[in-house]
Design a protein around this nucleic acid. Structure first.
Lengths: 111, 111
DNA sequence: GGTTTAAGTATCCTGAAAACTACCGGTAGT
DNA sequence: ACTACCGGTAGTTTTCAGGATACTTAAACC
C-alpha cells in the first residue's frame, strides 16, 4: 500500500497520532520498549494512572496488535504485557521522537 | 543537553506528543510542510475545523516557534502561515510517522 | 477470621478541548 | 444597496477522555 495523495499522508499522520497520542499510550509503549512489564509495574511507573484507565489503554493496544497480554500464572494472578513483533517497530519511531524533542527543547529554551 | 535516564526519555516523548498531538496540530504541521498557507486555505483543507480552534492552534504553534505568521497585505487582508526554520525540522519526524503508519496499517489490516 | 496481593470491573463524575453561534471592519463585486 | 470574502474575536455549550471511588475473586500469610 503506497501513499498517492497528500491528503492520504495527512490521514496517516492523524491515525498514528491517535495511536500514540493521548495522555498515556506513548508512555506505555515507551516503557514496554525495554522489557515486558506486569500490570502493577506499569501502574507504579506511570505515576497517577488509575487501574481502569490502564486497563482501557492496554486493551486498546492489544486490539491494534501492538501489545500482547500473557497470563504467566493464576493464583496469585500474574499477567505480563509485552510488545508484539510488530509493536517492536515502534521503537525506531520513539527514538526519532526523542531525538526531535531534544532538538526542539534546545531551540525553544536555549542550551 | 543529553538524555541520561529512561524517565527523562519518556518525559521527552510526552512533551513531543503534547506539541504534535491533539486533534489538529499534527495535521496543521503536515500541511505546512510543503508550502506556506493562508488562514482560509488551512481552514478549507482541515475539514470541519472552526475559525476559533484554528486560530488557537496557530497561536500555540507560533508561541513555541514552530510557525510564523506573516501579513502579506492588508485590505484585502492576506496572512500567510509557514514553518519557521526550526519548524522545518519536523518534516523528518513526520516522514518517519507516515512510514511507520503505513507499516502499521499493513500489519493490522493486511495488505 | 482478618488482612494482603494481584489484576482487574463497575459506576459515577469532572474538566478541558473542541464545536457552535454570532459578530467585527474593511474591500470587491453586481 | 446588498452580498460575499478575508481573517479573525467573544461567549456559550457540548463532548468525552480520563479520574475517583468502591468492589471482586482467589489464594496465602498472620
Amino acid at each position: 500500500m503506497e501513499i498517492k495523495t497528500k491528503q492520504q499522508g495527512i490521514k496517516v499522520v492523524a491515525d498514528v497520532l491517535d495511536i500514540v497520542g493521548g495522555k498515556w499510550r506513548g508512555q506505555i509503549l515507551a516503557h514496554l520498549c525495554d522489557d515486558p512489564k506486569r500490570f502493577n509495574e506499569l501502574k507504579t511507573v506511570l505515576n497517577r494512572i488509575t487501574s481502569s484507565t490502564l486497563t482501557k489503554e492496554l486493551r486498546y493496544l492489544e486490539d491494534i496488535k501492538m501489545v500482547e497480554r500473557k497470563i504467566i500464572q493464576d493464583t496469585p494472578m500474574i499477567v505480563e504485557y509485552r510488545l508484539t513483533d510488530h509493536g517492536m517497530s515502534i521503537k525506531d519511531l520513539i527514538y526519532h521522537i526523542v531525538e526531535w524533542g531534544l532538538k526542539h527543547r534546545n531551540t525553544v529554551f536555549g542550551k
